[in-house]
Design a protein around this nucleic acid. Structure first.
Lengths: 189, 189
DNA sequence: TAATTTTCTTAAACTAGCTTAATTTTTTTT
DNA sequence: AAAAAAAATTAAGCTAGTTTAAGAAAATTA
């Protein structure tokens, strides 16, 4: 069953009956995407929160020179959206696009509210998820200010070797804040 | 009353009775600090979450060259800790220090757990806080990859003019990821 | 109010990382 | 299996931003 990933993920954080879990899953829409499909468009209202069952998404924007810049990847069991825009129901500052063929659950803002109202335990689930995500973002900001770009790449590769293999190098370069050319040069050393 | 800031802040997110609110406040310790006092030490177990009633805190680390780097400021009504270390009860990757004389509430990890267990509505409060904080961190990462350091400074000054006045320029430089010397040069232009 | 400490400025020399542009390799499509 | 498209490499020239070092101004402390 396709929603079992979400169910299992929720179970690792909070305790719910099987009945509750199967009700919760009904709040979500399932969709399967091929590579390079866009799930959320910048400048359009951000009304979807995504959960990755299988595959990989990226949150990116196009900078002033027309270059695509990845701010966040999401793989299996990760949540992704423009959280600020989603919460305020504003237009998105980012695109979300599949990096590879992906199976994804999504929930609209109103359904998300309903879900949290009907199952207050889900507040704990999301509180924990966001607490970790925010903590990780602060660590990422620490890394950016601690190390040279060369170090950032090698440390990332040491910590996430499978992931480095998984995504195109120029997306990774963008995520780590360096140019693909410079990343290529670094690897040669 | 010194805890009223926290009470008012909670009230803007969730609805609780006055009795509940006064019980909640008992979970926190109040402390007043002068400028440049250290509240949390890197390498020591991160067992405190802080709420700023009045004043300004900074989350920083010392880089390989001995330079102090600010990753986050917290002013009135902001929560601050090394969230990743707090959640896992690991040693902190950051110091937390007052930037100016400050009044602060703190809560230990075990009390935080108790608080959330006893008042599940507080899960919603913190879920919302962290959702926003994470969204803001992603936007900050977007800024870092979008703009030159010069642009980052001017945009920040346009958006938060009071704050730019409030903290020493070299802390701000560190937070924005440039050297104090370069910031000084930029301002001259 | 003088002394001390902290913060900010200035400027020259330097370099990590970017830009540009051409080429090669890999992947995808037909 | 050929053609087309996408991704990665290479290398030279360049520049945004750092480093170093010294001095000036502002804020604290005595």
């Amino acid at each position: 069953m396709t929603e079992s990933n979400l169910i299992n993920h929720i179970k690792t954080y909070i305790t719910l009956s099987e009945e509750e879990l199967s009700e919760i899953v009904l709040f979500f829409d399932y969709h399967s995407y091929t590579k390079k499909e866009i799930l959320l468009f910048a400048e359009k209202k951000c009304d979807k929160l995504f959960f990755v069952i299988k595959g990989c998404l990226q949150l990116y924007f196009i900078d002033g020179l027309g270059n695509q810049k990845t701010s966040q990847f999401a793989v299996e069991n990760w949540w992704l959206t423009d959280f600020l825009a989603f919460q305020n129901q504003n237009q998105s500052n980012f695109n979300i696009e599949t990096v590879e063929a992906s199976q994804v659950l999504s929930i609209s803002f109103s359904k998300y509210q309903e879900l949290l109202d009907k199952f207050p335990k889900m507040e704990k689930y999301f509180r924990t998820i966001y607490e970790t995500a925010y903590g990780s973002a602060l660590m990422r900001l620490k890394y950016i200010n601690s190390f040279s770009k060369e170090d950032i790449f090698f440390r990332f590769r040491d910590n996430f070797p499978e992931f480095v293999q998984r995504v195109p190098q120029y997306f990774l370069a963008s995520f780590l804040g360096l140019t693909p050319e410079y990343l290529s040069e670094i690897k040669k050393r």
